[in-house]
């Protein structure tokens, strides 16, 4: 464990020192973890959304606007009740006890959390899951193998696969309306929300806002912004007056980003490769040192007529 940790840290220092030179860009794209580190340092500058559950009335405007904006099929007169291949976001209702023990109804808008160091991006073998570098985690179907490892990796259980599509299934999930963002617009769900329960902005500012709201209403909010530190931080943040574990958020979410775990191991691999190759080559050279005496002459197949038994 310790040396794993050390290897990672020394690698980072090494990268930082490289950061001065022109090699930085190349190194960042080539060495594992460098990109993640960059993501960490610019985390403040990424886009994000703040969902204040105390303000949500469960009107479902966001879910319907999402369908509209992304051209997803709808069932007329019905609101979506779960994430599926045609639903990037929906509003889930809970009858729960709040901190004072009263039973209240709370509505939770669910969608991809747009993790700062997304497990799905780290897991994807073909860069189909991709970090835009500005917060949104986007999916590029043309590269996707359909291996579904991103679904395994996602700590929030978000990605959805087209199980009934024979040969062009996709992974489906919220992409924070990245197209709209690039045109200077907010995500469709944010624009549609009539109560201001969803705020859009720079993650840094949203965090400040969230803590300000907690500070001014300590009796209303629980003192926790979900997504601030969970799985290394997410671009989507939640404020609530009911403990999050009663609202269907996964319990025991790791505080470190899951990709960190695999990076520890992947950083070891160069040593494994060279160590193994060197050991095997060394052994082979040693055992082959007296070729004439110990190595039986390999039979020449061209002239050999082995007598396989009948």
């Amino acid at each position: 464990m310790d040396d794993l940790e050390k290897a990672r840290i020394s690698r980072r220092d090494f990268l930082k020192s490289l950061g001065l030179g022109a090699a930085a860009a190349a190194a960042a794209s080539v060495l594992p973890g460098a990109a993640a580190q960059a993501a960490e340092e610019t985390a403040g500058a990424t886009w994000g959304m703040l969902v204040d559950l105390t303000r949500c009335t469960g009107c479902n405007s966001c879910a319907l606007a999402c369908k509209e904006a992304n051209g997803l099929p709808q069932i007329p007169g019905k609101v979506p009740t779960a994430l599926d291949a045609d639903t990037y976001t929906f509003v889930e209702a809970f009858q729960v006890a709040n901190l004072r023990g009263e039973i209240v109804t709370r509505y939770v808008k669910r969608q991809c959390m747009h993790c700062l160091e997304a497990a799905c991006v780290s897991a994807c073998p073909a860069a189909a899951m991709h970090s835009s570098g500005e917060g949104p985690i986007i999916y590029r179907a043309s590269r996707c193998l359909g291996c579904r490892y991103c679904e395994v990796a996602c700590p929030f259980g978000i990605p959805r696969f087209n199980w009934d599509n024979s040969i062009t299934p996709k992974i489906n999930k919220c992409w924070m309306c990245y197209e709209r963002l690039k045109e200077g617009e907010e995500p469709a769900c944010v624009s549609a929300c009539p109560t201001g329960a969803i705020r859009f902005g720079r993650r840094e500012d949203l965090l400040v806002q969230a803590h300000a709201r907690i500070a001014s209403h300590p009796d209303r909010y629980i003192d926790h912004v979900l997504g601030e530190s969970e799985v290394g931080g997410t671009s989507v943040l939640y404020l609530s007056d009911v403990p999050f574990d009663r609202l269907g958020f996964p319990a025991n979410l790791p505080q470190v980003a899951p990709p960190k775990q695999t990076e520890k191991i992947l950083y070891k691999l160069p040593y494994v490769i060279f160590g193994m190759a060197a050991f095997m080559t060394g052994t082979a050279l040693y055992t082959h040192r007296k070729p004439a005496a110990t190595v039986p002459v390999e039979a020449d197949a061209a002239t050999e007529t082995p007598d396989k038994e009948a």
């Binding site: 780290s122 897991a123 994807c124 073998p125 073909a126 590269r143 996707c144 359909g146 040969i167």
Partner: peptide, 21 residues
Amino acid sequence: LGRPYNVWRPLVHWQYHSVLW
């Protein structure tokens, strides 16, 4: 694989951070 015709892609898009890659 859902999209087996893309099976070659890991050989082209190198993803050092992906175990599956």
